Simulated scan of single mutants.
Amino acid sequence: MGFREDDLTNGLIRHYEAKDVVDILEPEASYRNSGRRGVPDLYVVFYQPGEALIEAHLIEVKSEHAVRSVTGANAIIRQFNKMRRYFYSSNERGPPTPEFEFDEVMLFFELAFIPSEYNFTHLLKNAPMYNHGIQTDCGESSWLPAAHSQDSEGALHNGVEVQLTLRHPKAPTRSMVLVSASGRSLNPGMSLPPSPNSIKNLSRIDTHLYNKLMIILKNYES
């Protein structure tokens, strides 16, 4: 069944280890809230000094084996949205706190699938569920700093990004966004089925798999 979740998580950890601005790098980041528990695959917090921006990333990884093992898309979405709703309000956790007055905070929640024919077909078959599940408001904005500043164009810096992506363990930092929900997204309103351009990066990583996924996508749309 190809790559494991550990393969992608280890690749992401190696990438973030090379950054000297990382404050938190925690695999298997457990949380507990009034009996509700969960363990996201990776939690990363780092500072972007040039932008005075704190980024906090919670990443849940799904391999083909994991997708085959659950009862369906509903179980995956339920687990992901439970993480979004309760991680920062858990007994041991809290959102990042800006150190300086003008620092901003962005919370990123990512459901990352390792690309395979099975996983891609699963996403297409369950497109309505994933599109609406990712768009669901789980109240994440309530954990952001109270003072939201804006730039000259009125763009909100404090905010939330929620994404469903494909990430290949051979190139873990090349995120292919398929579904997104955000007040400040570069790709607002992205949804399944994806455009061919959304998975173009895969052609540079695994040409054979990319060609197979393109055939699946064309058959789905026909």
Rank of each mutant, 00 (worst) to 15 (best):
P188K: 11
E28W: 05
R93N: 15
I215V: 15
H122W: 14
L217A: 04
P115L: 06
S30L: 03
F3G: 02
P128H: 12
S34T: 06
Q48E: 13
A171R: 11
T9E: 10
Q48W: 09
L192R: 07
L192E: 07
P115M: 08
S222H: 15
P96F: 08
W143H: 14
Y220L: 04
N33D: 10
F100L: 15
G38W: 05
N201L: 14
E221W: 02
E161K: 10
L144D: 02
N197S: 13
A146Q: 14
E28D: 12
S69A: 14
V67M: 03
L111H: 03
S180D: 12
F80R: 02
L8G: 00
K170P: 00
D137A: 08
V67T: 10
L178M: 08
M129P: 01
M190I: 05
S185Q: 06
Y43C: 08
P95D: 06
R78T: 11
S90Y: 06
G38M: 08
V162M: 04
M1K: 11
N33R: 13
E51H: 15
Y43D: 02
P115Q: 09
I13T: 10
E26A: 09
G2N: 14
E26H: 12
R174T: 10
A155C: 14
A181G: 09
P145Y: 06
F3I: 01
I199M: 09
R14E: 14
P115A: 05
I114H: 03
K170F: 09
I215P: 01
G94M: 08
G189Q: 10
P172E: 06
S182Y: 05
M83T: 12
G159P: 02
E28N: 12
V67L: 07
I76S: 01
F80A: 02
N197D: 14
D137N: 14
S63M: 10
I205P: 01
R68I: 09
M176P: 00
I76K: 00
Y118P: 03
K218R: 15
G72L: 08
S30A: 13
H15I: 14
H15G: 03
E110G: 04
R32H: 12
G11Q: 10
E64W: 01
S222T: 13
E51S: 15
I76G: 00
S89A: 11
V160M: 04
H132R: 13
H168C: 02
V105G: 00
S149A: 12
E161H: 15
L53R: 15
K218I: 03
G139C: 11
H132T: 15
Q135V: 05
K125S: 10
N197T: 13
R14P: 00
S69G: 11
N10Q: 12
V160H: 02
M106Y: 01
V179Y: 03
Q48D: 11
G133E: 04
V39F: 06
A171S: 14
